[in-house]
Amino acid sequence: MTTPARSADRTPAVLVLEDGRTFRGRAYGAVGETFGEAVFNTGMTGYQETLTDPSYHRQVVVMTAPHIGNTGVNDEDPESRRIWVAGYVVRDPARVPSNWRSVRTLDEELAAQGVVGISGVDTRALTRHLRERGAMRVGVFSGPAVRGADEAALLARVQQAPQMSGADLCGEVATTEPYVVPAHGTRRLTVAAVDLGIKGMTPHRMAERGIEVHVLPAHTTLEQLYAVRPDGVFFSNGPGDPAAAGHPVELMRGVLERGTPLFGICFGNQILGRALGFGTFKLKYGHRGINQPVQDRTTGKVEVTAHNHGFAVDAPLDRVTDTPYGRAEVSHVCLNDDVVEGLRLLDRPAFSVQYHPEAAAGPHDAAYLFDRFVQLMEGQRA
């Protein structure tokens, strides 16, 4: 159970990591308890897009920027129908938001949607701990859950929470019914978008390019997908462990067999990796933020990009790989740690990236990838 809280309240709260380290603070958002995987986001802006990104399902997000909530909350920027984070951790929440688009405070929005948070935490120390020890399970407790609570008992409950490894979550966040995002102006192309946790800005970016987007549930069959007569197929971002997502992999293999132009983002990149026969693995603490340097190896250009992923594709950086669908290579790589950030097939019209070119909060260095998808579809049609 959760109840509303106000950031100005002194309601006590405690954050308990699965390795036993604790951080005390004050309730922020709803009062109660929540469990998830503790991860940190390095973005200094775009917190509303972060909160409503379905890829954060079952994760407790620690914001490394010290001041959060300065611009309040509006009704135009959400990336989906609700907040998806399991919990929220901030250092200094804004006392009064200041922005002409703001309609309510972040504290009020979190409380209204039952999201348990904690403020007054040394997020720098917490982030350094997660960088050293890795992302791990966490519980946030406030109000009656804290008063007189035995920390050992709280720790035991955290350690009983499910882990992210092995979690098949895309079906929990995807649409249950197909819907259409119409093209802006004249329709040039049609795309079937498989929703694994899609962000609202993604079909918007396609619609800007004259694409009519049919957003389909994660459990869509190959026959249902091709019933919309797509010029191209898109696989979205989403939460969970790609190794547990069997149906999307088989669906993508069916698309590759037909040779339809294909584009994947984030989880979609991991699904392409698995479809091609590569493995995936869990990163120590993941990439989450809007300031990650990635090199497009096909052009040599370096982009500053938006990320949200805790898993990555295990593919060789130094050679082309033969797959059941032709030759494949790593097209993009993270310059911080050499993690695979993109794949492309050399003999079929298919490519993917691990990051977010739609990037509602910015940056927009990677927006050209939607144009590359358009070129693939137009080339195939010609």
Rank of each mutant, 00 (worst) to 15 (best):
Y179P: 13
V180W: 00
V181M: 01
V181W: 09
V181C: 05
V181A: 04
V181H: 04
P182Y: 02
P182I: 00
P182N: 06
P182T: 02
A183H: 03
H184R: 14
G185F: 02
G185C: 04
T186W: 11
R187Y: 00
R187G: 06
R188A: 00
R188L: 07
L189T: 03
L189C: 02
V191H: 00
V191N: 01
V191R: 02
A192R: 06
A192K: 06
A192M: 00
A193S: 13
A193R: 03
V194L: 14
V194M: 02
V194T: 09
V194I: 12
V194S: 05
L196A: 11
L196M: 12
L196V: 03
K199Q: 15
G200N: 15
G200F: 15
G200M: 12
G200V: 06
M201V: 15
M201W: 14
T202C: 11
P203G: 02
H204P: 00
H204K: 13
H204I: 10
H204F: 11
R205H: 10
M206I: 04
M206Q: 12
M206H: 10
M206V: 04
A207L: 05
A207Y: 06
E208M: 12
R209T: 03
R209A: 01
I211K: 01
E212Y: 12
V213Q: 08
V213W: 10
V213H: 04
V213K: 05
H214A: 02
V215T: 15
V215S: 02
V215N: 07
L216H: 04
L216P: 11
P217H: 10
P217Q: 11
A218I: 10
H219E: 12
H219I: 00
H219P: 05
H219F: 13
T220L: 08
T220M: 02
T221N: 11
T221G: 14
T221R: 01
L222F: 11
E223C: 07
L225D: 05
L225Y: 08
L225R: 13
L225P: 05
L225N: 03
Y226H: 00
Y226K: 07
Y226G: 03
Y226S: 01
A227F: 14
V228C: 05
R229G: 02
R229C: 09
R229H: 14
